[in-house]
Amino acid sequence: MDSTRSQNNGKGAMTRSRRIANIALLTSLALIFSYVEAILPFNIGIPGVKLGIANIVIVIALYRIDAKSALSINLIRIFISGFLFSGVFGILYSLAGGLLSLGVMAALKKTDLFSVIGISVAGGVMHNLGQLLTATLIIENLAMFVYFPVLLFSGIICGIIVGIVCYKVMQHLDHV
């Protein structure tokens, strides 16, 4: 049902300029979310645990446009927010997490078995897993994996929250 909708979204094929405008708009939205998250005092003392509200935009782009656009948005967001807030290593971590998470989300969406909550839970967990793998590679110490259960559970919980938000947002996007 939702796939037919997104095809009809631009009254037939989405024009190139409309696509670019949409990606630009969503990228800036994702950037704002990254910024809000960077200044949000949501920090429970474990590095890597965060809400991932920028993922809302990515998931919606994945549903409403396509995987390619979601990838563009994610890459641009990661580089710009990396240069603005976190530095080169931050980009490296985000890149690993973002690419793995988007890859899995796109693959799971293709199966057409999952709702947006399942997709975003998988995305959240994979994002954390990607970052953990990068950290393990950089530090060259498997002991990093003691964080794994913590990051897994935080990924599940944040993924559910993000999924519910996406669901609600897309419900209203339907009326636009």
Binding site: T111, V116, G118
Partner: peptide
Amino acid sequence: MFKILRKADI
């Protein structure tokens, strides 16, 4: 509208 939670999600 698609369902909010499906079997596969759970």
